[in-house]
Design a protein around this nucleic acid. Sequence first.
DNA 1: ATGGTCGATATTCGA
Length: 265
Amino acid sequence: MRIATWNVNSVRSRIDRVTAFLERHDIDVLAIQETKCREDQFPGLELSAMGYEFAHRGLSQWNGVAIISRVGLDDVATQFADDQPMFGDPEIVEARSIGATCGGVRVWSLYVPNGRELGHPHYDYKLQWLERLRQASAQWLADDPTAQIALTGDWNVIPTDDDVWDVTAFEGKTHVSQPERDAFHAVVDAGYADVVRPFTPGPGVYTYWDYQQLAFPKKRGLRIDFVLASQALASRVETAWIDREERKGKGASDHAPVIVELSEM
DNA sequence: ATGGTCGATATTCGA
């Protein structure tokens, strides 16, 4: 079974790339982030015609997450916790998480808050969001240590200095601060391993390149998109890769997809 | 790598 995660930066403007990606890599389950549309606007007809089911959480032109699967899509949840942190005026639970069981794997598509600036209310929201996710993720494994769980998505955290083209360019900025890195590693320590890194060793391996200032051809990227897997799922990982080719050309998302190949059970 | 931001209930805001 092959699962992937990809911040598509608008699913409506990118649907042809999404369907081509599913075919090119023979993907069974795709978690996407930043759909940037409401549920009634989701371009699902082409996916259905290809034999995929989908579940989408989208409230407005911001955020939005979905799971696309051809191996089942059960027990859909649009929050990882009843008390998931809220943001906005008025405060709402934003469309940043959706979970579903696909082919025996509990898959989460996660879009971690960006944080905007150190000290910004959005930064505190980001840290609270990650901590609440850690709590929920730890509880799932406490309930069933053999559960196959994939925490996938855009984490908006640069976990180590090897995961950014020049860490000095990020001094005083979000994504590299110690509280953010600690919050990310706390999820890992709860029992969820980065199953892609062993197959894509760095430095210089990234999943995101800014649209501005020729970041992609200049290889100025960040590694912020991850598949974190519970032990039972991690033991099934045969290989993984980042589809850097998808970042090329006109109409590319600023993020590249990340793919994990699992052995059959 | 074949390019010098992009997307949306846009004309500003979020990333």
